[in-house]
Design a protein around this nucleic acid. Structure first.
Lengths: 147, 147
DNA sequence: GCTTGACCTGGAGTGCACTCCAGGTTGTTC
DNA sequence: GAACAACCTGGAGTGCACTCCAGGTCAAGC
């Protein structure tokens, strides 16, 4: 009753290329994929779930090397759950840090965009320290924003 | 009165390697860096500010190719502000998408960690659909979590 | 049973963003 | 003025995560 997926179906389902699927298998991230008598791969729903975890980890920039380690721990069964938990918890901190860094960058980008809008709206020098005298500084600069 | 920084000072200040600084210069991301009479680089505060923008863009995965385009637009002065604004606004959407993807991944990771904790605490089968009968399914599986 | 598209393998190639190196020059400190 | 670290250039090398390729096999429709 279980539906098995051909490579192209699997690729579409997981939003990943067939080549990447084979690459992951070669690297040992994917194992014991069923085959037809002719030797063609057939992926199960469990395989889909596992690839989705792999994708989640890749999205969050876990290196393939670490994903291999995780896959190895999964192979070891329940006895390796504490170690798997430790690995994911450590990685979680990285993800939180990444989100933080992106938030900071977003603030910078928003500030820059706001500065551009201000300049386009004719409000002068929003991005720079106001000059205390009308003296022209900075090598005779003419532009409202250097960047 | 302006303090100029040596390459190593600049590297430390911007948290970037000297090699990367030179690489950026070669690629045209950094321009008209001052030199001593002997030919050694001296970086200004403006250079620091610009490198910090570059770093912000790299943090958010803007490709070097796009950063070059942005640098080119900056070189063109105020007339290119609408285009710069457009570029950053487009990129902003990517950053927001990245943050969203990381949030989703974080949810998945947290769920996984919670499952592990539940297993370690002895609560069975939290990660899977409860069985309607005590029949053992899934190829005689013995582990509480497949992944 | 023939066509045609999907799939197989091992291995080579790609793009990106650095990173390192050799061989020489500069600048600071004693 | 000698020693020695920091710097210079052009170019080669690296690590990562795919991605592509050649040459052959499989399977579904007509």
């Amino acid at each position: 009753m279980e539906t098995l997926l051909s490579p192209s179906e699997m690729a579409e389902r997981c939003e990943i290329s067939i080549d990447t699927l084979r690459y992951y298998e070669r690297e040992g991230l994917l194992e014991s994929i069923e085959r037809t008598t002719g030797g063609q791969r057939r992926y199960s729903e469990d395989d889909v779930a596992w690839v989705q975890i792999l994708r989640c980890l890749r999205t969050t920039a876990l290196p393939i090397r670490e994903m291999k380690r995780f896959a190895e721990l999964v192979r070891q069964g329940d006895s390796a759950i504490p170690e798997r938990s430790r690995l994911l918890t450590e990685h979680r901190a990285n993800v939180v840090a990444q989100i933080g860094a992106l938030h900071d960058a977003l603030t910078t980008i928003d500030h820059k965009i706001a500065t551009y809008s201000a300049i386009l709206d004719g409000i002068p020098e929003v991005d720079t320290v106001p000059e205390t005298s009308p003296t022209l500084r900075g090598k005779g600069r003419r532009d409202a924003s250097r960047t």
